[in-house]
Amino acid sequence: MNKALNEKFYREYMTFFEHAEKSRRWNLFTDIDWESVKAAPKNDSLALCAETFCGVEMYLPDYVEGHLDMFKDNFARSWFAANWGYEESKHGLTLREYLVRSGHRTDEQMHAYADRILSQRWKRPFPTARQMTAYGVVQEMTTFIIYKKQQQLCEQQGQDGLAGIYKLIAKDEMAHTRYYEIILGHYFDDDREGTLKDIAEVFYNFTMPAYELVPDYDSRVEVMRTAGIDRGVFLNEVWGPVFKKLKITRHDLPRSQRVQKALGSAAPQSTAA
């Protein structure tokens, strides 16, 4: 590992952690309006979305294992992974508590759901730390947008307690996005060409973590689409801002292998305006 890069990662982690400790920490037991959650009318569609997100968060042991395994020789990045795991565990627990306290699910149902979730394994989708950093930017940004949309939907439907939950979780997801963006920026400064290749690899092969592993995913995805989460969101609201932040455009990325193959050449991308 490049020593200068490693030192930058350490500084960034300390900045991230200081900010989290001073201004971003929240408490599942005291910072959520549970009375409002209990008093709100039942909403099966919002509950199904919450259960799906809770399920995705429940793959936490695999996410943390995958990251710690990759970064075990890197102090700053492994400490970030541990802290990230703490924050994500709180998200999963909070959504679980919402489902039970709101009366949408029983404890027994949630235990059975957890058993079904944990019977499947999530595997790290990309092999290198730099690719996983690019993946982290996009995955966290996508998650942030999903939760913000859910927050807005809850506000429109008078579900203020659940809206408050999504607001807190979304704030964490944005902090994770910013952290990964900064780390990716350091990789970029260190090796622009290699980092662009890795971003392209992630761009052309990205899928959200574990969604396909969640039980009954096909029926859930239809409900989530009606909540404003579709493919267009991914392009316009996720990748667009990420490229802007990195001061690149889609045209800076090498073409995908599938396109190169179809065009019958591995020549560099056209620079025609």
Partner: peptide
Amino acid sequence: DSVAVMELVSYFEEKLSIR
């Protein structure tokens, strides 16, 4: 899916020499 559409766009750009 959205990735496939972007690949088609990339193919178009190369074939037609446009961005």
